[in-house]
Amino acid sequence: MPLFLLPYPVIDPVMVHLGPFPIRWYAMGYIVSLIAGWLIAARLARSDALWGDVRRPRAERLDDLLVYVAFGAVLGGRTGYVLFYNLPYFLQHPLEIPQVWNGGMSFHGGLTGAALGAYLFSRREKISFLSVGDLCCAVAPIGLFLVRIANFIKPELWGRPTDVPWAMIFPGAGPLPRHPSQLYEAGLEGIALGIILALAVRAGAFRRPGLTSGLFIGLYGLARIFCEFFREPDPQLGFLFGGATMGMILSVPLVLLGALMVFYSLRRARPAARDLAAEGR
């Protein structure tokens, strides 16, 4: 037992009751992140200085993009959780599959679903999928931060036992003090990643389609792998092999894909640059 412990701030997981309907912090995290992301994305889409001559989504069409991405993220997130994290249970309790308000979402599945929604939107609007993805990824850390805070409030996805001075005893996690791993993820996946992407966008990342998306995917994968060393594995899965967790395994392809996207976007010559070079300007 560590000499010092931070008291866990017990917060009702239900934010407010609207008549007989409970509004949970978990659901509110998704709602606020979607609205905030939509507002910031609209502001980014209107900035000619950030995009140069790259064709991007029109700000007035982002309502449709929000619907595509939100639906894809929720459907993909729940599907990913069912398939990767708890398939035997849900095969026995299929009626619980749509009950997303009780928790149980996979980021990797949500990312896949959101990417599919962004792809369908890009096809309909006849815009580069990479540019649509860049805009979405630039605001995605908002959602990561808020949902990880909601995980902390619930509480769920707590950390492994530890003796660090900031350890906490989580309700429902037994008597051992644990890492507040939800806050680690909120800090790395939300705040730190958000700052890096904001700086990249200001430096002209939108002018190279795929660069912002690649940075987001790759850096998220690295942050998730790091945080998994402090996070308690899902009890129904435990450690898979060699101390690896499902979160680590699913994040490795993200790191590789992100690195390839960054390399491709930096190496790819812009058409305008080629034209100018050919003219000797």
Rank of each mutant, 00 (worst) to 15 (best):
F107A: 07
A203R: 15
R270T: 06
A186V: 00
I217H: 02
L120T: 00
F263P: 11
R231M: 10
G247D: 03
P209G: 10
L5W: 03
S128E: 01
E156S: 12
G221H: 01
L197E: 13
P171W: 15
M1T: 13
R224C: 08
L254S: 05
W38E: 08
A73M: 07
L146G: 05
G52K: 01
L276F: 05
E60F: 09
A49L: 14
I217V: 10
P161H: 01
N151W: 02
A198C: 09
Y89F: 06
A192Y: 12
R148W: 04
V10M: 14
R208F: 06
E189Q: 14
R46P: 11
L237F: 12
V164W: 15
C136E: 06
S33I: 12
L83H: 03
D134W: 03
L116M: 12
L116A: 15
M15E: 07
K126H: 08
A138P: 09
L66F: 14
W25E: 04
V14Q: 02
A140Q: 01
L6F: 15
G80S: 00
D48C: 09
A41M: 07
L146V: 04
R224P: 12
D63Y: 05
R24T: 15
D134E: 01
A173R: 12
M1E: 11
L87T: 07
A198G: 06
W166M: 10
F84Q: 07
D134N: 00
Q236M: 13
L176A: 14
G37L: 03
T79Y: 05
A198P: 04
Y26E: 08
